[in-house]
């Protein structure tokens, strides 16, 4: 893992300052790739993909966190893992199949619009579900929601039952239970899930390629397009920026919430 994972990622920083040649790159020191990234429309695309990923994180929180709380608190202990495993099923089906099949579901004449019209929620089909940033956000939620549920559940699983019992005995109301108990104790899981969705949202090219419109470009797409254009230093600069973003977020998360707590129930 050190040779084929850590080393290539660290070396992206070195390769990103190499000079571009016709088909490859040669050793040297230039910040041209970074200039190329930060002083062009690529930065705008990158920031806009960050914004869309943030929306996906917020949506995944509102959909996934109540599910994780429900499984932890209302489902019998022996059945909790089995219910959680329901969310593994979609994870085990190819992301490509899941994302591509969203196209006909979300399109103007698709299943969703037909259903909304049949139930008289709308009069004319909505075309914003696909080939727009909304499509990208929907794709990210469908792709990454299980991870938010897994990581949050893992954090909640580490909370001993007596804490809930004490709260009940002391008459703690639901709002306070959520704010003072569940939210702080689930924070490591929430953070891990959020980082996963955020970073993959800005780094996976497949979702904007299939569901985004012509302007939907994220860091992953910039990197792969740079490789196709044989601009390897630019691809490496994007990879280095992504790596630093990820490492920074994980470091902050670990300092704030001690992310290794997440593995306590299984270690």
């Amino acid at each position: 893992m050190i040779i084929f994972f850590v080393l290539p990622l660290l070396l992206t920083v070195v390769w990103s300052v190499f000079e571009r040649t016709m088909f490859w790159m040669e050793p040297g020191f230039t910040l041209f790739s970074y200039e190329n990234f930060f002083f062009s429309s690529r930065l705008e695309n990158f920031l806009s993909s960050m914004f869309h990923s943030s929306i996906s994180v917020v949506c995944a929180f509102f959909i996934g966190f109540p599910i994780a709380i429900f499984i932890r608190r209302r489902v019998k202990k022996v059945a909790q893992h089995r219910v959680m495993l329901l969310f593994i099923l979609p994870f085990m089906v190819s992301e490509i199949i899941r994302i591509f099949a969203l196209r006909p579901i979300l399109s103007r004449n698709g299943v969703l619009n037909s259903l909304l019209m049949d139930f008289n929620f709308i009069d004319t089909p909505i075309s914003a579900f696909v080939f727009t940033p909304t499509g990208v956000v929907i794709g990210e939620i469908v792709s990454f929601l299980p991870f938010m549920i897994f990581s949050t559940f893992l954090a909640l699983e580490a909370i001993p039952n007596y804490i809930f019992e004490v709260c009940a005995d002391l008459g703690v109301n639901r709002r306070r239970m959520f704010k003072d108990i569940l939210l702080p104790l689930a924070a490591p899981g929430l953070f891990a899930g959020s980082v996963f969705i955020f970073v993959n949202g800005i780094g996976i090219a497949l979702i904007p390629t299939i569901l985004g419109g012509p302007g939907s470009v994220n860091a992953g797409l910039i990197a792969t397009q740079a490789i196709i254009a044989l601009d390897f230093p630019l691809a490496m600069a994007v990879s280095a920026i992504m790596m630093f973003t990820l490492m920074g977020l994980l470091y902050i998360g670990h300092r704030l919430f001690n992310l290794t707590k997440l593995l306590e129930p299984i270690s």
Binding site: V195, F196, V199, N200, G203, A219, S239, M242, M243, L246
Partner: peptide
Amino acid sequence: LFVPADIL
């Protein structure tokens, strides 16, 4: 798990 596929 956290590093996007395109980047890695």
